[in-house]
């Protein structure tokens, strides 16, 4: 039985909702796959926090440039029209509202748009925030790609985040393996169901009420 979306299909679905010509920042994990599923006829320009616009795909191993990495510290390439800049300029692009879309993974996202994706707050854990708090406050549209539940089956879409927040009220749209869900003033709103998935299943696996399709 073929039900739901796999990682690539989730990324492809998210890519459909990014306007042509957007400046885009992709988080680590499933969000990185968005770059492999750009719709025909669309062009996105990728920003990476460590100082480049126009980031291209990974190079062949023997064509690596040791001075050309992305924010995930992976080797990348530069597209024609790329630009390099220092960290303060890079985060001016983020904080100053110049980046159009950021696609992030998450641990939890709440019905009011709160996102928690940097720390479980567990005692003894080493806190590491990177650029996540700058991105969620500064980028115009924050999209989330995530499995609908944790490996243990706990909902990741919740009424209130229990983990420490990355930012309050910032997420606009969520792409999961089961559905596309918007954050609205009335809470979670179903936008689209993945193939073979029912509204009842999505609701049962969500930690808050979801408004059904109108």
């Amino acid at each position: 039985m073929n039900t739901g979306w796999n990682r690539d299909q989730m990324a492809a679905r998210a890519a459909q909702d990014i306007p042509d010509g957007s400046y885009v920042n992709l988080g680590i994990g499933i969000p990185e796959l968005v770059a492999q599923h750009v719709p025909e006829g669309c062009e996105f320009i990728y920003h990476t926090e460590n100082g480049m616009l126009g980031m291209g795909p990974p190079p062949a191993e023997d064509e690596r440039d040791l001075d050309l990495m992305n924010a995930g510290k992976k080797y990348v390439t530069a597209m024609p029209g790329a630009a390099y800049f220092h960290h303060a300029d890079s985060f001016s692009m983020i904080r100053g509202g110049h980046i159009d879309v950021c696609v992030l993974g998450t641990m939890q996202v709440a019905e009011n748009g709160d996102i928690a994706n940097w720390s479980t707050g567990a005692p003894g854990a080493i806190p590491a925030v990177g650029g996540a708090m700058d991105l969620v406050q500064g980028v115009k549209h924050i999209y989330v790609i995530t499995q609908h539940t944790t490996r243990k089956g706990d909902p990741k879409l919740v009424d209130r985040c229990t983990y420490p927040l990355t930012g309050p009220g910032v997420v606009s749209r969520i792409f999961t393996d089961l559905a596309v869900v918007d954050v609205t003033p009335g809470g979670f709103q179903l936008v689209e169901l993945a193939p073979g998935i029912s509204f009842e299943e999505v609701q049962a696996k969500t930690g808050a009420s979801i408004l059904p399709l109108a």
């Binding site: 960290h87 303060a88 904080r95 708090m133 700058d134 406050q137 927040l165 990355t166």
Partner: peptide, 27 residues
Amino acid sequence: PQGTLAERIRAAGAGIPAFYTPTTVGT
């Protein structure tokens, strides 16, 4: 946070003792 780190360093170089940022609000 990374952007705040960069801007705090830049501010020191620019002679600006403090600044306001939206980053970390509500956290």
